[in-house]
Design a protein around this nucleic acid. Structure first.
Lengths: 203, 203
DNA sequence: ACATACTGTTACACAGTATAACAAAAGGAG
DNA sequence: CTCCTTTTGTTATACTGTGTAACAGTATGT
């Protein structure tokens, strides 16, 4: 296993090999089911020796994680930045920007959602998005108890993922502008409204 | 492959073997990840010969499908029956009954949700629930266009699944009575409200 | 140009899949 | 109960993919 972190300068051969492996995996996932992909296939497509795979990764899962983390970090900072400016009047715009971003990176998202086969990844994504909304969605903090808030942010995260999945399967048919309205209405406003009504009953 | 359908009388040996294999798989799934389960393990736990597996199933996936279909048919008829009597005033009761049912069959549901690893199964479940709500949820039929209705029923189905998943992971902590309120407020009322507001804008 | 680090080739042990042939046991019809 | 059919068990085998090892070859940077 070549060293990776200590010196900031990574051997260009290592960089190249890892890029080849990541790209090969991406191409394969877009063509077939992740579960049916073998290490041999990846190394052949990447045109590196079979054993070279093991010199960088322990399993295909780990390689997949790296691929997704690459894009996921980017997505998260993007969504987080959008959520930070949670001006209620601009929620529709926030939604539009999310779906425009997805439109750009459609390939990555198809892979990410296909890879829900690997349940851990879905949970990680849900957990990340959930935390973001829990921190930034101001109205939720005031209303309701902790359990309700956990439930609500989990609801927002999973609903958003499902909506994205549905949208990609429908070939991104309603435009991002329309989806922005849907996002505001179906995901955010709905949830905030439900939490407040649930909390009102609790009092 | 022993014949199964033509005569209503199934050989008792076949019945026994298939039951042993199903039970063995269920026990194993509750203990470890489905992806790491081998056919050899299943046959050993079931105390049948290795090759006997292939005399009844083509793959572990197929066996898993049979196990889930068994319980899924039951769940679907249950939810459908509840949704049929969609008296708006009894939505809370409908929700309570769903979560009470899940409480009873917790093991089956843990397996079902763990098996989302097999993406096909999640899609099947979502599609089934989605269709049920699309048919029975009267308010949605009047409001909005077909795309919106598809999206909304998909939203209801995935949200319900996610909520069930969250509830099981939280050791079924808020009582079914509380979850009934959540179901009405967060899943149904929210969605209906959102659809009507989206449709109003469209006009 | 030289030591270092990475990559490629070949070989091997191992586990799981999938099939085949034959023997043994259990079920059903007369 | 007996006989024929069907199912199950045993053993053997080919195949594929995993994961590791040793050694030779190639690229990197100082």
């Amino acid at each position: 296993m070549p060293r990776k972190s200590s010196p900031v300068n990574i051997d260009p051969r290592v960089k190249r090999t890892r890029r080849l492996l990541r790209d090969a995996l991406v191409l394969l996932i877009l063509k077939k089911d992740f579960a049916s992909i073998t290490i041999k296939e990846v190394t052949e497509r990447a045109e590196v020796a079979y054993i070279t795979f093991y010199r960088h990764y322990e399993s295909l899962d780990q390689l997949l994680m790296e691929v997704l983390d690459e894009g996921l970090v980017e997505l998260m900072t993007h969504i987080e930045a959008l959520a930070r400016q949670s001006d209620p009047s601009s929620l529709e715009t926030e939604g539009r920007l999310i779906f425009e971003y997805i439109e750009q990176k459609a390939d990555l998202f198809r892979i990410l959602l296909k890879s829900q086969s690997v349940t851990r990844i879905r949970k990680k994504v849900v957990s990340n998005i959930s935390t973001i909304f829990q921190k930034s969605c101001v109205p939720l903090e005031r209303l309701g108890n902790q359990v309700t808030i956990n439930m609500a942010s989990n609801h927002i995260a999973t609903s958003l993922l499902s909506l994205i999945e549905w949208w990609l399967e429908n070939n991104m048919k309603p435009s991002p502008i329309e989806m922005g309205k849907v996002y505001k209405s179906l995901i955010i406003d709905s949830t905030v409204g439900a939490v407040s009504s649930l909390s009102a009953v609790a009092k």
